[in-house]
Design a protein around this nucleic acid. Structure first.
Length: 197
DNA sequence: TTTACGATCTAT
DNA sequence: TAGATCGTAAAT
């Protein structure tokens, strides 16, 4: 499976977020492949988006977001979690797609080992769960998703009637209209889609 | 240098 | 429903 080309990411962020559904996130590690089918994403559409880390302009932590498309923006939050994004749009524009959930495909023995004591449905059904499961952390920040050990491969095209949209999760303190914009995309009925609260 | 908080998860 | 837990950036 080939990595999606850079021009896939050099498009409007919401189109990328929609089209990443059904694609395969792969992490090559120690000669093995850990992978999963992307079932939930969120778009963070640019500095004007008050829910986006890019809203205050480039900083040391979010610099990758402002770089060229097709790179991994990995950041640390809540004192313990790593979250994985794919950078979108033109170099210099701060936008990305957060990968929120995947369905395990390859390397399920290794994935299980990274999620000890948890049932399969809780291995990758959340943005911090999937990074833990696929061993994605700060070392992956800035990785080239178009040609490296962490990449995204094309999947079967997901028809529109299988795609649902809604507001993004975990941004309750963000002002309207950004809080309510339907920038979250998921596969209808897929059991690995994260639980919102 | 100090403080407040966060694109979450888990156990209670 | 609250506690864990710490890097980051704004405030002091």
């Amino acid at each position: 499976m080939d990595a999606l080309p850079r021009h896939f990411y050099d498009r409007p962020t919401l189109n990328v977020a929609r089209d990443l559904l059904g694609c395969t996130l792969v992490h090559r590690l120690n000669g093995r492949r850990l992978s999963g089918r992307i079932v939930e994403t969120e778009g963070y559409v640019g500095p004007q988006d008050l829910a986006s880390h890019s809203r205050r302009g480039p900083t040391k932590a979010n610099a990758v977001m402002f770089g060229p498309p097709g790179y991994a923006y990995v950041y640390f939050t809540y004192g313990m979690h790593w979250l994985l994004n794919a950078v979108t749009e033109a170099d210099g524009f701060g936008s990305a797609v957060l990968l929120r959930a995947i369905e395990p495909l390859e390397g399920q023995d290794l994935i299980a080992a990274n999620r000890p004591g948890r049932p399969p449905l809780e291995w990758t059904s959340g943005p911090a769960k999937l990074t833990k499961a696929l061993a994605v952390d700060r070392a992956c920040n800035g990785a080239d998703l178009c040609g490296g050990d962490l990449f995204i491969g094309a999947g079967d095209r997901v028809p529109d009637h299988q795609v649902q949209t809604g507001p993004r999760i975990g941004i309750a303190s963000v002002p309207e209209p950004w809080r309510s914009h339907p920038y979250r995309f998921w596969l209808k009925g897929n059991p690995y889609v994260s639980k919102s609260r």
